[in-house]
């Protein structure tokens, strides 16, 4: 089963401003749980004026209690120890000539339980003349000036897929990939009833529940992500790059402090902590 969530909205800022804020969006007050961000690949194609980037984010995260309840111990193993952090892979292409940016983010762990792939397309609205080529001034101010007359349109789609019960996905992934290339997913789904109606029904319903929980979180996450971008964009407008970097530094300090407080609280009254810091969540894309 696959669930897809789609949404469209706009930023009241020019495309270059949004494309700049995108690489500067962590940390922000809505994303204090982002521990690190690294660029693992970057390529500039001078001919097409496109920039290809792959980044790896590390976030504090945890499977939500609602999902934990649905999962048998045998699948989780020592998950409670390992699940406090998770890696997110983000790829993006910025085409400055044509005025669009395409991004994709996905979780790298727990993909058997729930794989979340978020794609966003950012576009300079049609009819707006190219900003780039005639602009020779320096500083960020002129990038922002265009905000008055243009915005940036965004379409987002999030694909959620739980493969729970297809246990081989948890441990024998490489084998699965080989199998998947020879047989389509549809066939895999149809295989299930043979294993007994009840078993397949319950697996399907657990998958469905997990996808629904993911869906709810996705909606919240997209809203938060937009708020975060707007904070960064506002800082950019108020005081350029300097203001963004200064804000980032403050957010980072705040996150460290919060982490410290949380650790203290846990070490004092720690039994088995079901408590979550307000910024900790399972969904890897709270801020995308």
């Amino acid at each position: 089963m696959v669930k897809v969530y789609e949404n469209s909205f706009s930023y009241d800022y020019s495309f270059p401003a949004v494309a700049l804020a995108y690489f500067l969006r962590y940390p922000n007050p809505y994303a204090t749980h982002v521990i690190s961000t690294d660029v693992i690949d970057r390529r500039f194609d001078a001919e097409t004026q496109r920039l290809y980037t792959t980044r790896l984010h590390l976030k504090k995260s945890k499977l939500p209690p609602a999902v934990l309840k649905l999962l048998p111990k045998s699948i989780l193993g020592n998950a409670n120890d390992d699940s406090s952090q998770s890696y997110i892979l983000e790829t993006s292409i910025v085409d400055v000539k044509e005025g669009w940016m395409e991004t994709e983010s996905r979780n790298l762990e727990w993909t058997g339980i729930l794989s979340v792939v978020e794609r966003q397309m950012y576009r300079r609205p049609l009819g707006i003349i190219e900003v780039g080529s005639r602009d020779t001034s320096s500083g960020t101010a002129s990038l922002i000036e265009h905000a008055k007359d243009t915005g940036t349109d965004v379409t987002a789609s999030v694909t959620l897929l739980s493969r729970l019960g297809q246990g081989r996905f948890l441990k024998q992934r490489s084998k699965v990939i080989e199998e998947a290339s020879s047989s389509s997913r549809v066939e895999e789904e149809e295989e299930q009833p043979k294993r007994g109606l009840f078993k397949s029904w319950s697996t399907a319903s657990i998958q469905g529940s997990i996808e629904l929980i993911g869906m709810r979180r996705t909606r919240e996450a997209l809203a938060k992500s937009k708020e975060g971008m707007n904070v960064v964009l506002d800082r950019l407008r108020q005081g350029g790059l300097v203001a963004v970097l200064e804000g980032m530094r403050r957010d980072r300090e705040a996150a460290f402090q919060e982490g410290g407080l949380l650790r203290n609280a846990l070490s004092k009254g720690r039994a088995d902590s079901d408590e979550e810091s307000p910024t900790v969540s399972f969904d890897p894309f709270d801020n995308e």
């Binding site: 270059p16 494309a19 700049l20 690489f23 500039f44 001078a46 004026q49 920039l51 910025v94 400055v96 000539k97 190219e130 900003v131 780039g132 080529s133 602009d135 020779t136 320096s138 500083g139 960020t140 990038l143 790059l241």
Partner: peptide, 11 residues
């Protein structure tokens, strides 16, 4: 990125 690429001036 901000002074060259986003202005279409990067080579």
């Amino acid at each position: 990125y901000s002074e060259k690429f986003l202005r279409g001036n990067a080579s």
